[in-house]
Computed example of a mutant assay.
Amino acid sequence: MIVDEQSFGAGVASAVDPRTSTSRMMRGIFLVLGICFVALGFIGAFLPVLPTTPFLILAAACFARSSPRLENWLLQHPRFGSLLRGWRERGAIPVKAKLMALGGMAIGFAGFWFGSHPGPWLTAAVVLLMLSGLIYVFSRPS
C-alpha cells in the first residue's frame, strides 16, 4: 500500500521535515557545545594554564546559534560581558589582556625550557607557535 501525505494530513508531513529536525539538532549541538565552553571557561578562571576568555567567546558564538537567552546572559555578564562585546564588535583585545597573554606565555616557555630541557628543534617549534599567537594577539585592536 502506498501512503501519501493526504492520508496522514498536513501536520504529520511537517513533523518529519528533515530541515526542521536538522535545525533543531544543530541548535541542540550548539547548545551543548556552548555549555561545555562555559564550563571550560569557568575552570580556566581558576587554573592559570587554561584561558577563560577564548572559551567564553566560543560559548557566545554557540549560544548565538542556539539560545538567545544564554547569549544575552554572557554578553551582559558583569565580569566578562564587556570583553565579549568588544571582541564581537571590533575584534578587540584589551591591553591588559595582551600583557597577561605575553606574561603567561613567557612563564609557560620558562616552565617548558627548565622543566624538560628540550632539543633545538622542539624549542624552535614552541617559540614559533608562541610567537605566532602573540603576533595575532598584539595585531588586534585594543
Rank of each mutant, 00 (worst) to 15 (best):
M1W: 11
M1V: 10
M1P: 11
I2G: 14
V3L: 15
V3H: 14
E5C: 14
S7F: 14
F8N: 15
G9R: 12
A10T: 14
G11E: 09
G11L: 13
G11R: 08
V12G: 07
V12D: 13
A13K: 13
A13R: 11
S14W: 13
V16F: 14
D17N: 08
P18N: 07
P18M: 07
T20A: 14
T20I: 12
T20V: 12
T20H: 09
S23V: 13
S23D: 15
R24T: 10
R24N: 07
M26F: 12
G28L: 10
G28I: 08
G28P: 08
I29M: 13
I29D: 14
F30T: 01
L31P: 01
L31G: 01
L33M: 12
G34W: 00
I35A: 04
I35F: 07
C36K: 03
C36P: 04
A39P: 06
L40F: 09
G41Y: 00
G41N: 01
I43R: 05
I43M: 08
G44H: 02
G44K: 01
A45V: 04
A45D: 02
V49T: 14
L50V: 07
P51S: 04
P51T: 01
T53M: 05
T53R: 02
P54W: 00
F55E: 00
F55Q: 00
L56G: 00
L56N: 00
L56V: 04
L58I: 05
A60P: 02
A61K: 05
A61H: 06
C62T: 03
F63M: 06
A64K: 04
A64T: 09
R65D: 04
R65L: 06
P68E: 11
P68K: 14
E71R: 06
N72W: 07
W73M: 05
L74P: 00
H77W: 11
P78R: 02
R79W: 11
F80S: 01
S82M: 15
L83M: 10
L83R: 03
L84S: 01
R85C: 07
G86P: 04
W87F: 13
W87T: 02
R88V: 04
R88Q: 10
R88E: 06
R90L: 11
P94Q: 03
V95G: 09
K96A: 09
A97L: 07
A97Q: 04
K98W: 10
L99P: 09
M100W: 13
M100E: 12
A101W: 03
A101R: 03
L102V: 09
M105D: 03
M105A: 07
M105R: 03
A106E: 12
I107P: 08
G108W: 02
F109M: 05
F112L: 06
F112Q: 00
F112N: 00
G115M: 11
S116N: 09
H117D: 15
H117V: 14
P118A: 06
P118D: 05
G119I: 03
P120L: 05
P120R: 04
P120Y: 06
P120A: 08
W121K: 06
L122K: 15
L122A: 10
A124K: 10
A125V: 11
V127W: 01
V127E: 02
L128Y: 15
L128E: 11
M130W: 06
L131C: 08
S132K: 09
S132E: 11
S132R: 12
G133I: 04
L134Q: 01
L134G: 01
I135L: 12
I135R: 10
S139M: 12
S139Y: 12
R140I: 05
R140N: 09
P141S: 09
P141W: 06
